[in-house]
């Protein structure tokens, strides 16, 4: 206990004073640390002979995915079942119905089904905020357009926290199509709240046009500059399916300028490599880098279920801690 207290101090707050997780914008360090610490407890639960607890028995979690996703959706569903919650799943092609109308219809359906927690992925930025206003249920964003993907960022933070003693002064470079990445935005908010230094790196076409909207970050288009003195390099996925308006000349050219290679790892002996997956081998990361011991991509996946259990748990209650004497 005493050893652990040093490594992972008990968060100063006992519960989230929030109904929803729509994004990490505006979240404070204590709130994030509470989520991370709770997720560490659930990592232990997942190692038990019966990796399930009855905590959310009688709770219903609805997963609504208006965008294709396998891993995030499975991760949420597994997290819910490990907590003994029941899950219902909506998937919509969304092509035939106007978005506003669809969401409002969906909201009414969710109301009628008496769900307690709603997990939403939607191509429109702000869709979770819209739905949250129309529902009594707690809403968890699983990604909205190019806006935010808060649970991905939280599991990234959990993975980093396992490797470094503190976020204070930690240097993280996020490399790739930053401007269109919800993963990058959520990570910037989370990392900045915890005191890390963030560098955004990519071709000028992929860097945010208004970095002022992401306070306290540095931008560069030189990979060497981004890796200099860097602790964690987080490569973003190049969305091959979204290249209708090319942002770079060719994949080969992208890899030549922004792909992480074995040579980079050799030149920066402390550097850890992360990636939200799925990796395009030979594009964002050289194949050898993906399999390198300093690539902690599979740790990220492992942490996904525990982190999402923590979010479901913390948002399922919403009451205040009763520090009563047994």
């Amino acid at each position: 206990m005493s050893k652990e207290s040093i490594q992972n101090p008990q968060p100063k707050i006992q519960n989230l004073n929030r109904r929803h997780l729509l994004g990490l914008s505006g979240w404070g360090a204590e709130e994030i640390q509470l989520v991370l610490q709770t997720a560490r407890r659930f990592r232990e639960v997942l190692e038990r002979p019966i990796p399930q607890v009855p905590t959310l028995r009688g709770t219903t979690v609805a997963t609504l995915f208006f965008e294709p996703s396998t891993r995030t959706k499975l991760s949420f569903q597994l997290a819910a079942s490990r907590l003994s919650a029941s899950t219902v799943s909506f998937s919509k092609s969304g092509s035939s119905v106007a978005k506003g109308e669809t969401l409002k219809d969906t909201a009414q359906n969710i109301e009628a089904m008496k769900t307690d927690l709603v997990v939403l992925r939607h191509p429109s930025p702000g869709a979770p905020h819209f739905l949250a206003r129309h529902l009594d249920a707690a809403l968890i964003s699983a990604g909205d357009g190019a806006h935010e993907h808060p649970t991905q960022a939280l599991l990234d933070l959990l993975t980093m926290a396992e490797r470094f003693e503190t976020f204070e002064g930690l240097r993280v470079s996020i490399i790739g199509d930053v401007a269109h990445s919800r993963v990058a935005r959520s990570n910037v908010f989370g990392l900045r709240a915890l005191g890390a230094e963030v560098t955004l790196c990519g071709p000028p076409t992929m860097l945010p046009s208004h970095p002022a909207g992401l306070p306290g970050v540095r931008t560069t288009s030189a990979l060497g500059d981004a890796l200099d003195g860097c602790d964690v390099a987080m490569a973003l996925r190049i969305q091959l399916e979204r290249q209708d308006e090319p942002l770079f000349p060719s994949l080969r050219a992208y890899h030549a300028h922004f792909g992480l290679t074995r040579a980079h790892l050799d030149a920066h002996p402390g550097l850890l490599v992360m990636h939200p997956g799925p990796v395009n081998r030979g594009v964002e990361l050289e194949s050898e880098v993906v399999d390198h011991e300093r690539a902690i991509i599979l740790d990220q996946v492992t942490n996904g279920v525990a982190l999402r259990m923590a979010v479901l748990y913390l948002l399922a209650g919403g009451g205040a801690e009763d520090e009563g004497a047994a």
């Binding site: 006992q14 008496k114 801690e321």
Partner: peptide, 10 residues
């Protein structure tokens, strides 16, 4: 579904 579920404890 009422948002008044039980207390969350650390």
């Amino acid at each position: 579904g009422s948002g008044a579920a039980g207390a969350i404890r650390a």
